[in-house]
Amino acid sequence: MSTVRANGLSVHVEQLAPADADAGRHGAAPTAVLIHGLTTDTLASWYLTLAQPLAANRLRVIMYDLRGHGHTERPPAGYAFDDFVNDLAALLAALDVTGPIHLFGNSFGGTIAIGYAVRHPGRVAAIAAIESSPPTATWFARVAQQLEHAAAYLPLDHALAEIRAERGELASRRARTAREVLAATSLVRDLPASRLPAEESIAAIDCPVLWVYGGDSPVVGMVPEARRLLPRARFVTVPGQRHSLLVDRPGAVRDIVLSWLREECGLPVGLPNITGFSGHDGQDQPSAPATAH
């Protein structure tokens, strides 16, 4: 396990070198930074899904645990949106990443990616966001509601047992992690009170942007707002999938992302044959028909 000091925190970081060793010399390899979501998520969701396909396509891959999550330090306070964006900027500086970066965000990780691009437009080559939204008041109200519900429900004695019975052991373990994060930090208070970027600054983002949604996820309802702000972005929906799209259908996400990197970002990527590439259930995940809109 690797840790880096960034923005005053000890941050857990994992990196994958490009499959072609020569590609990483002299900073030639493009860099992919993978940002996970809040409370139940960690960098492991990327490590088990998209990280290896990106590295196999000659990208330098950087994954990290957000503040308060996984193996990164958990301060009791400091969970406003700016804190998460500042952490990303400080981490890239600590790792001496100076060239353009490709940002990948799952859920709130995509929101952080947009926030970083607003502040550092010249540093971002492209953004791929899965089950996410730009940092708008509508999205933050939705996130706040979910955090408040989780903070009230998860401490109940029967909560984890109910989640285990309905959604399985993995969901129960992730809910336990969320309960610990919410109990030990000011996330529920800090995030809804965040200062948000102006919509004009979001609309000014001019790099390629990809939005991927599960067709049965409530987050797909954010598409109209995201399209209003970033009308040139590509929007793809995977039918029958929920908010856990990334970990439930990594093969589908992989195919969508790699096609977009090739077609919209000009990277020479393909669909690699990766030994051991699997989803959380240990089974290879075939691609699912997806709808672009």
Rank of each mutant, 00 (worst) to 15 (best):
Y116N: 12
A117M: 13
R119S: 06
R119F: 04
H120C: 09
H120L: 09
H120K: 09
P121R: 07
P121M: 09
P121Q: 12
P121A: 08
G122R: 02
A125E: 13
A125M: 09
A126D: 01
I127E: 07
I127K: 07
A128E: 03
E131Y: 06
E131Q: 10
E131V: 02
S132E: 10
S132K: 06
S133L: 12
P134I: 01
P135G: 07
T136A: 06
T136D: 01
A137E: 15
A137D: 12
A137C: 12
A137V: 12
A137R: 14
T138K: 08
W139Y: 12
F140L: 15
A141V: 08
A141E: 14
A141P: 05
V143I: 14
Q145R: 11
Q145V: 05
Q146Y: 00
L147I: 01
L147Q: 00
E148V: 11
H149P: 09
H149V: 13
H149G: 14
A150K: 04
A150W: 04
A150H: 08
A150I: 03
A151T: 09
A152C: 12
A152W: 10
A152N: 12
Y153L: 10
Y153K: 08
L154E: 01
L154S: 05
P155G: 15
L156F: 09
L156V: 15
H158A: 15
A159V: 07
A159R: 05
L160G: 03
A161L: 15
E162P: 07
I163F: 01
I163K: 01
R164A: 00
R164N: 06
A165H: 15
R167Q: 13
G168H: 13
G168A: 14
G168W: 10
E169F: 10
E169M: 01
S172F: 01
S172T: 02
R174Y: 13
A175M: 05
R176Q: 15
R176P: 11
R176G: 15
T177D: 04
T177Q: 05
A178V: 01
R179G: 05
R179D: 04
R179Q: 08
V181E: 02
L182A: 01
L182R: 02
L182N: 02
A183D: 10
A184D: 12
A184Y: 11
S186Q: 07
V188R: 08
R189M: 07
D190M: 11
D190H: 13
P192M: 01
A193M: 04
S194K: 06
R195A: 03
R195H: 05
L196N: 06
A198F: 07
A198V: 04
